[in-house]
Write a protein that binds this DNA or RNA. Structure first.
Lengths: 157, 157
DNA sequence: TCGCATCGTCAGCGTCGCTGATCATCTTAT
DNA sequence: ATAAGATGATCAGCGACGCTGACGATGCGA
């Protein structure tokens, strides 16, 4: 009855791929994100929303542009993102008198409340994921990921 | 001009986020993928294309469904993906006499050639990224990522 | 004042995950 | 054998996202 190669449970990822750091990184990130989003679903926010809230709460009166820079989210994507956050009543756009082009994005008290709860979920998800690593190596891994995420081997234009 | 590098001004990623394993994972994965895609751009293929090629070469006569299962790509997305690979002359769809519903996806010689070259680029990108990790921890990290991602490898025993 | 950069916005393109439907085909229970 | 159910590929369509290019409004240096 064997028709198309091994059954799904005996997945035959070629070693190139199964051992591919990039592939693993991407699938692991996806898994963690899904896990997180499952837990914060009840707050009606996405992982991205939480990221913005986190930046905004920790650093009030940033413009959309700055937030996007920090999170590496495109400026045009930030528009809709802040729109939805505003629509959810989690942040507000405030006109800046000294620079009437930009807004100051501020978290509402509801926004801060949601963030607080989401961070609890985040901590749980992350500790679950990190528990799969030897305890002594967790810090080193995070440092390495920071560097990797920051590397620009080609001309930063 | 200087659009990257250290955070501009005083605004900084809050510790919640900067230390967030999920955030780091996702940004690191993105960085590695971009890096890889920059290098294989000249082959006119994407990272995804290379993933499919890798699976297909290592395991001929898989159906689209099986390939998608291995790579965690949705079945409906696989259609366009194989379409483009076929359009590039890198794989072929072959009708299966024993099951006329599905195709056997096979790499062409051109497909194998492109994969071979792409794997060289992949190795370079990955070793660059991994070089940021203590050598002794690289294996542990990859195994942990496998677990986090929920990936099964047959070589795991 | 003029020229240029910056901020937010919008339209539009391409990719991707996902739902749901369809058609052809295979399998299984009766 | 046949009907009922699964399965593979495909398509239409939705929403999210990255990104380009254009725009108006505004700030700022020469």
């Amino acid at each position: 009855m064997k028709r198309h190669g091994p059954p799904a449970g005996f997945a035959v990822l070629p070693p190139d791929l199964a051992g591919s750091f990039g592939f693993l990184l991407s699938k692991a990130a996806e898994a963690v994100r899904r896990n997180f989003e499952e837990r914060i679903e009840r707050h009606r926010v996405s992982a991205r929303h939480v990221g913005v809230l986190s930046v905004v709460v920790a650093n009030p009166s940033l413009s959309q542009r700055r937030i996007g820079d920090l999170l590496r989210v495109d400026r045009t994507t930030m528009v809709a993102l802040i729109d939805s956050l505003e629509g959810l009543g989690l942040v507000t756009r405030k006109r800046v008198p000294t620079d009437r082009r930009s807004f100051e994005i501020e978290a509402t008290s509801k926004g801060r409340r949601v963030l607080e709860r989401a961070l609890v979920d985040a901590a749980r998800v992350e500790s679950e994921a990190l528990s799969l690593l030897p305890p002594g190596e967790r810090r080193a891994l995070c440092r390495a990921l920071e560097k990797i995420a920051g590397i620009r081997t080609h001309a930063a234009r």
